[in-house]
Nucleic acid binder design. Structure first.
Lengths: 346, 346
DNA sequence: TTGTAGGCGTTATCAC
DNA sequence: GTGATAACGCCTACAA
C-alpha cells in the first residue's frame, strides 16, 4: 500500500550510474555539462535521474570543491520588525541574482545570542556575514575571520572593537536636519525621545544631531527634554509627562519609529493637535494623518542592498581598508513638523 | 606586514590533532563530548582549537552523519513586504530554539522562480520547507518529497495539485465578518476592492466571504462594486471612480493592506470622511487616524509560528494525513467601520 | 567517450 | 583512553 519510500535513502550519483550501467563520473558529467558525453548515454542518464528523482547533494559538492556554502548570513535583532524586514528584503534582492541565498536569524538584541549565531553561521561556511550588532556586543573575536577574507559587513550600527566594513544611515545629519526644521519654524523647546539603552549607536548619533541643531539655532540644551523609551507605551507616557510639566516642549522629535508609534496616539488622545512633531523613520500611513507626519525617512531596503553589495565586492576579491558607507536620509514634510509654536512671535 | 592568513586554508580536525600530537578522532571526541578523554589531553586539545581558531565544518559533519542541513527554507513572494516579514519572524522564532536556521528567498510571485528556489533548497538538504505559493504555481512535482517525509507546509495559500499541510488565515470568515459589520451599520452599497489577479487564493476566499455576507443581509450582489487592484495607486484610482459613479457605494471593504493603503489617502484627499471603511489586515497607525481604521486583523507572526510548528511536528516523526490549520482573525472596531450611511433611516 | 583512484573534513567502528 | 580505517557523496586528475 504505502510507498516504500520512507526507508530508502535518497538516490546518489552512484545509484543513477548503476541504473544506467555507467560510472558515477559519467552521470556527473551529464549533470554539470562537463566533459563530452555521447547523446545516447546522456539521454539514458537524464531519464534515470528523472525516474529516481535524483537531486545532487550540494553539501557534498561544496565539500569536494572546497567552495563555501552559497549563503549569506544576516543577523538582526528582530526578524519581525518592519525596519529589519525591509532591510533583509534589500539584502535578499541584491544577493539572489548571484546565486546566493539569505540565511537569517534574530539575536534578540542579546550579545551572547549574537555570538552563538555567528559561530553557527561560520560553521556552515557561509559566503558572507552581515550583522546588525546587538547592543553591547563586541566583535574582536571576528578579527581572524575578517583577515582570512570572509566578507563581513556591519549594518545599521558599526562593529565594536574591530575595524570592518559597515553601512549606516546618516543618523546625525538626519536628526540635525529634523530638529533644525523644527527650530526654523520657531520652536525653542524641542523634546527628544530616543532609544533605550541610550548607549545604542543610532541613539547616540541622533542625539548628537539633535544637540548640534540646537546649538546652531542658539537654543540651550535642556536635559529635562531628553528622554528614553524602548517601546511605544513608555514613549507615550514620557511625552505626556513632558507636556504636563511646568515648562512643556512645543515640539517633539522622536528618534525612531517605535517612539513615533507611541507619541502619535498619546498626542491624539490628549487632543494636542498643536504640538509639532518630526519623527526619524517613515511610517506607512504617515501621509494620511491629520496633520501628516513629517519624518526624516530612512531607506532600510537601500541599507540592506548597500551592505549586500559591499559583501559581494569583497567576495569578488576587492581588498583594501574597511569602508563605511553612509546611506542618505531625507526630510519629508507633511504638516506635523511645520506647525508653529502656540504663541508665535508677532 | 600583511598577515599571511590569506592563503592558508582553515584548520581542520587533523590540523588540531597534529598540533597536539593526538589523532583526529580524539579531537572530535573532545569537541563533541563523545567518548572518554583524559583531562590533560582535553585541555591541550581545547588550547590548540583556540589557538588555531579551529571551527568544525558543518557540511562535512552533516555529510558523514547523514543528517540533513539544520535549516528550514521559507519561500515568500516578497521578503520586504511587512506581512511576510512578520510571518518570517514567526517562523524564525519558532525554529531557532530547535537549532534550526531560517533560509529565506523571494519568488517574486513567479512560479518559475519559485520552482528554481525550491530545487536549490532541496539540493542543500534542508530539514523542512515552507512555501507561500506564487500565483499560478503548481506543486505536483513535490509529491515525492512529501512522501519521503520532508516536512512540507504551505503558508497563507494552499498548495495546488498536491495534498499537503497548510496554514492559512480565516479569510472567508474574516471578510464575511467585516462586510456583515458594515451591513449591520446600515450600508447596502458596499464596494469590494480586492487583489489582482482575482484568481489568487486569498482574494477568492475573501470575495466569497463578501458575497456571503451580502446574501445574509439580503443585499443583491452588484458586480460593478467589485474591483481589483494590485498596488495602492490603482486602488486609489478605483475607489475614486466608484465614488464618482451615479450610484456610489456608501461603504468600502478593502480586501488587503495594499488596497487600504491606496484607499485611505484617496478618501482623505477627496475629503470623504463620510465613507465607511473596513480593511482586511491591520496597519501600524490605524488607531491614530481620524476616524480610526476598523480592520479585520490577521496575525502574520502566528501564521508563521503555526507553519513552523507543523513542520517541526512532522520532523519529530508525526505522520498522518495532510492537515490545514486555520489561524483566526479578529475584527478591530476603531471608527471607520461604524460610520452610518449618509441618509440613515429615521 | 568513458572509467579509476583519491580525497574534501568529519565521525562510526573496532581495535589496541 | 586512544588510534587506524573506512565511509558519507561528490569532483579533479589522470588514464584507458
Amino acid at each position: 500500500m504505502m510507498a516504500n519510500a520512507r526507508k530508502s535513502r535518497r538516490p546518489t550519483l552512484a545509484d543513477v550510474a548503476q541504473r544506467v550501467g555507467v560510472s558515477a563520473k559519467t552521470v556527473s558529467r551529464v549533470l554539470n555539462e562537463d566533459g563530452p558525453v555521447s547523446e545516447s548515454t546522456r539521454v539514458k542518464v537524464l531519464a534515470a535521474v528523472e525516474e529516481l528523482g535524483f537531486q545532487p547533494n550540494l553539501m557534498a559538492r561544496n565539500m569536494r570543491m572546497g567552495t563555501r556554502d552559497s549563503t549569506v548570513g544576516l543577523i538582526v535583532p528582530e526578524v519581525g520588525n518592519p525596519f529589519f524586514g525591509a532591510l533583509a528584503g534589500g539584502v535578499e534582492g541584491a544577493v539572489r541574482g548571484h546565486g546566493l541565498t539569505l540565511l537569517m536569524a534574530a539575536s534578540e538584541e542579546d550579545e551572547q545570542q549574537e555570538h552563538t549565531l555567528v559561530t553557527a553561521f561560520l560553521a556552515r561556511r557561509i559566503s558572507g556575514l552581515l550583522v546588525v550588532p546587538a547592543a553591547g556586543s563586541n566583535h574582536r573575536y571576528l578579527r581572524r575571520e575578517r583577515d582570512s577574507g570572509l566578507p563581513l559587513v556591519f549594518v545599521d550600527r558599526p562593529a565594536t572593537g574591530l575595524s570592518a566594513d559597515a553601512v549606516v544611515s546618516a543618523n546625525e545629519e538626519g536628526a540635525r536636519t529634523g530638529v533644525a526644521h523644527l527650530a526654523a519654524h520657531g520652536h525653542r523647546r524641542i523634546a527628544f525621545i530616543g532609544d533605550r539603552p541610550a548607549t545604542l549607536y543610532t541613539r547616540k548619533m541622533r542625539q548628537r544631531g539633535y544637540e548640534s541643531a540646537l546649538e546652531a539655532a542658539g537654543i540651550p540644551y535642556d536635559p529635562s527634554l531628553v528622554v528614553s523609551a524602548h517601546d511605544p507605551y513608555t514613549a507615550g507616557v514620557a511625552v505626556r509627562r513632558l507636556l504636563d510639566s511646568p515648562t512643556p516642549p512645543t515640539a517633539v522629535f522622536t528618534a525612531n519609529n517605535v517612539a513615533s508609534l507611541g507619541v502619535l496616539p498619546a498626542l491624539a488622545e490628549a487632543g494636542r493637535r498643536d504640538v509639532a512633531l518630526v519623527g526619524f523613520d517613515d511610517l506607512p500611513l504617515a501621509g494620511v494623518l491629520q496633520p501628516g507626519l513629517t519624518v526624516v525617512a530612512q531607506d532600510p531596503a537601500a541599507i540592506g542592498r548597500a551592505a549586500a553589495e559591499q559583501a559581494l565586492a569583497r567576495l569578488r576579491g576587492e581588498r583594501g581598508a574597511a569602508r563605511t558607507v553612509t546611506v542618505t536620509v531625507r526630510l519629508v514634510e507633511r504638516g506635523s513638523g511645520e506647525l508653529p509654536p502656540p504663541k508665535a512671535q508677532p
